[in-house]
Design a protein around this nucleic acid. Structure first.
Length: 465
RNA sequence: CGGGGAGUAGCGCAGCCUGGUAGCGCACCUGGUUUGGGACCAGGGGGUCGGAGGUUCGAAUCCUCUCUCCCCGACCA
């Protein structure tokens, strides 16, 4: 490449970036396209920059895939949220990823608000540290092992106690540096004997794992309680019906292990809880307990375990010698806690709890889009113009909108919209347009109301996307 | 890991028993008619029948081995 050509190339590249930014701003501010470079007016870019379903990668399936037995798996495949790559391993398509990120963000915000600091640890871990804690043998074949070109042993991380304990012991020397909490949101791999139920029991899955580090067991319990409260806020914010139950904390004793379950008839765990009091346990623990609550007050429900918090004490820090110097100048072992949330499993659990025969009914907080805008007559210019304008207005008000501009039959569009399950469907067709109206349908209640174009249902908040 | 089932077009399946040029529905492409709950007519594209070996004049079909996926069970900080 000659020098003048190179300079021209550089200038062009810069201009391209500049135009892209301009283009995005213009399009998303309601089509103020007068200053838009010519190329960005191409239908291709326009459709990419708007969430136009005609070019949005959400391949829906009318028929039930044979391999999917549980409803969340079936609906995620059918609505084009996920696709299987191999047993227990999935691609997340744009719709699925948006949901996953919404869950992730709620979890992240509450972790940060609790003082935990976000980090990112590797998926590949040296096997040596697993030998230090003895979990190399204990985990067995569920730990997927691999060798590098130098014949060194590695494994794919099913959890990160070893890695984080190693990190902390190498970088903390004094009690003055404690306490702190670290967390990450990262893919885990467990080579399950039998992966099943789609995202409910995959081999690779997205998990939030948090770890606390304290100078004493008493202090570690304080950290535990902070996390316990954070978890309650998280599950409230997710908009799900959930229960916290006592879990078997083994030799540690006390109340320092809790499971968080999303209630769903398809859940694998059976929970027992007091309808009037605090008592709530997993059925296995109930059978072992001396429960003083009268039987008639106990209620049984199925749950999906989506969170588990645990006081580890020195289970990992002792074998790995994670120590700090105390105020008396003595070595003391760090006391730890660990706190997990199955992010991708929550996505499945949310569907198990929120669906009907037509598809998913997303809680507002998790929905991939708040509004599904449906142009009933793709070829009709008036309909298209009305939809384009409404789309721009809704975006300008901060609403997240998926715009079905496809030239398909009305039945197919309604069916897809119900399947994908956005909380609101806004339909514009020639019939309503004669009166200057759009039809708004609440996915959960099924209620519909005709409103003048641009007017929103009162129960639809005007939150920023 | 034990038991069972299945691999044939993107999806759902038939064909296999009894070997003889690979089919159906949906989806997809082209043209036209349609259009408020998965439309219609006409035309069209797409398959090394999971893979390898064997038997045979000839294999999706019979035999052997192998891989993968699914279901039930055991397992799951």
């Amino acid at each position: 490449m000659s020098i003048p050509k190179f300079i021209v190339f550089c200038i062009n590249s810069l201009m391209l970036h500049f135009y892209c930014i301009l283009g995005v701003m213009n399009l998303d501010c309601g089509g103020l396209s007068c200053k838009m470079p010519q190329y960005i007016k191409t239908p291709y870019l326009r459709s990419l920059l708007k969430m136009r379903q005609s070019s949005y990668f959400a391949p829906t399936i009318k028929e039930n895939p044979a391999e999917a037995q549980v409803v969340s798996h079936r609906l995620m495949l059918r609505s084009g949220m996920i696709r299987q790559v191999t047993s227990g391993v999935y691609n997340y398509l744009p719709l699925g990823l948006k949901v996953l990120q919404k869950i992730e963000n709620i979890v992240r915000e509450e972790m940060n608000a609790s003082g935990a600091q976000e980090i990112l640890m590797p998926m590949v871990q040296p096997l040596e540290i697993w030998k230090e804690t003895g979990r190399d043998d204990k985990y067995g074949p569920e730990l997927l092992r691999l060798k590098d070109r130098h014949d060194r042993d590695f494994c794919l991380g099913p959890t990160h106690e070893e890695v984080i304990t190693d990190l902390v012991r190498n970088n903390v020397q004094s009690y003055k540096q404690l306490p702190f909490m670290l967390y990450q949101i990262q893919n885990k791999f467990r080579d399950e004997v039998r992966p099943r139920f789609g995202l409910m029991r995959g081999r690779e899955f997205l998990m939030k794992d948090c770890y606390s580090f304290d100078v004493s067991v008493e202090k570690a319990k304080d950290s535990y309680e902070i996390m316990q409260k954070a978890y309650c806020r998280i599950f409230d914010r997710l908009g799900l019906d959930w229960r916290m139950v006592d879990a078997d904390s083994g030799e540690i004793g006390g109340d320092f292990s809790h499971e968080f379950h999303v209630l769903a008839s398809t859940g694998e765990d059976t929970l027992i809880f007091d309808t009037e009091g605090e008592y709530a346990v997993n059925v296995e623990k109930h059978d072992a307990d001396n429960c003083s609550v009268p039987a008639e007050r106990l209620k049984e429900a199925k749950g999906i375990e989506v969170g588990h918090i645990f006081l580890l004490k020195d289970a990992y820090s002792a074998p790995m010698s994670a120590e700090v110097l105390s105020d008396e100048g003595k070595n003391i072992t760090i006391q730890m806690g660990c706190y997990g949330i199955g992010v991708s499993r929550i996505m499945a659990a949310a569907i198990e709890q929120n669906h009907d025969e037509n598809g998913i009914i997303w809680p507002e907080q998790l929905a991939p889009f708040a509004i599904h805008l449906i142009n009933l007559r793709g070829k009709d210019e008036e309909c298209a113009a009305a939809c384009d304008k409404l789309y721009a207005d809704l975006k300008a008000q901060g609403h997240d909108v998926l715009y079905d501009d496809r030239e398909a039959g009305a039945g197919q569009k309604f069916a897809d919209a119900d399947l994908i399950g956005c909380p609101w469907q806004c339909t514009i067709g020639p019939r309503g347009l004669k009166n200057g109206e759009a039809e708004w349908k609440n996915r959960r209640t099924g209620e519909t109301v005709n409103l003048p174009l641009g007017e929103l249902p009162q129960t639809l908040g005007s939150k920023a996307a």
